[in-house]
Amino acid sequence: MKTWLRLGDKKRCVELPDNITEPGRHACIVDNRTVEADVMVTEENILSLIVEGRQYRCLLDGDALVLAGRRYEFAVEDPRSLRGRSGGAEGSSGPRTLKAPMPGRVVRVMVSVGDEVEAMQGVVVIEAMKMQNELKVPKAGRISKVAVATDATVEAGQVLIVVE
């Protein structure tokens, strides 16, 4: 089975045998090169990998691989999408949303529907862990939606404001 990954600015293709998660040695193909890997999943999301005698303890944490204390962020790509991840990004012409970067409590909402805003203008203040953070709109335009009110609790990724 083939998996396309984006690691930093590089795109990699990894082909794994179907029984890859069974312990033992497997022949895998990384970008047309064959890599002999001894695979042992020791715990949920933790893998001990031996390649050419070197042992790597790897841990999957959300969208990143943690290895020897370092985080390597990666994304699994859909091979059918030729444009890759950047292809779907929102342009400056359409509506843009401001999402909560972290869970927290809304301390202040500084705009209301219909307000004209500048790009990078602060519009919402969220407090988490004794710290207040001012969130800014990604582009200039008119506020078309205010989805939160003062004192509301928000989750990470929740839409707060829409600007058109």
Partner: peptide, 15 residues
């Protein structure tokens, strides 16, 4: 980098 790509693919597939 090969190892990082490989480990990422294995753990993703396992998940």
């Amino acid at each position: 980098e090969d190892v990082i790509a490989l480990a990422a693919a294995i753990l993703t597939q396992r998940q």
